[in-house]
Amino acid sequence: MKKNASSLFFSLVLAGGAVQAETVFVTLEKDNALAVVDPVEGKLIKTVPIGQRPRGIAISPDNKFLYIATSDDNVIKIIDAETLKEVGKLPSGDDPETFALNPEGNRIYVSNEDDSMVTAIDIARKKAVKQIKVGVEPEGITVSPDNHWLISTSETTNMVHWIDTKTNTIVENTLVDPRPRAAGFTADSQQLWVTSEMAGTLMILDAKTKQIVKTVKFEISGVTADKIQPVGVVIDKDRARAYVALGPANRVAVINAKTFEVERYLLVGQRVWNLAFSPDQKRLYTTNGISNDISIIDLESQTVTKSVGVGNYPWGVAVKP
């Protein structure tokens, strides 16, 4: 309650003064570049070369650094979020694609798809400190907000691995629907939401029992089931709504995060993969790989307000306040 009041106060202050627009960063897999977008103006500000085949992207909790997996360079680059200059490299292992930052921002966990490993990297020391053997083709990776769990999903083993961040060992495995892609925790760390690309489903797992408590099947009239390939998933802070990118179905599903009902499907660009909230969670940004743009969704009105052309194969998205 207190938190809500303060964030309301914060947004009022913002509304009163000059609007301080956030910056949206988008990795462009085929352009070897990073697109910088002003989402309020709905404009591409600039595109900067960033390295070979950039995919995964995250911003440090203090918003000072961007971490970008440049897959064909086999590193994760550390980029100054202000100057966009490279300030360091992290030893990610071969072909890094997806990774996750811990809440403190001092560890990065990388999925090494070809080696069936997750590598834990100490950011300050720029060193790999642990390799954890997981299932075949690890893909989705996330850390719970309470920093208790590191989650790795393996696409061919069809499992969610629960890794204790203190010991860096797997404590439990949950068998899920085929080809699990992305995983995301609710803000209270109580639930883990996991998408299955092949089954076209979203599964909600209880973090205590590690069991699936609900499976949501996406169905859209006029779109065949095999086009519905859920990928990115985000849940808002209040656990009111969650959003799932449905890949080649070109839609984002809006889900009531309490009843798990699908409220609507929002038509966005082609092959929508990854999602990010604006810091105030009033907007959602989507990367659309084939239509080469991002869609901006206004979450109050639940409508797609804009699409901004960014470059070839937009993949990952991160937002700086």
Binding site: S116, K133, G135, V136, S154, T156, T157, N158, M159, H161, I170, N173, L175
Partner: peptide
Amino acid sequence: DDNNTTGAFT
């Protein structure tokens, strides 16, 4: 090989 990677967990 892939089965046994999964099998290690099951």
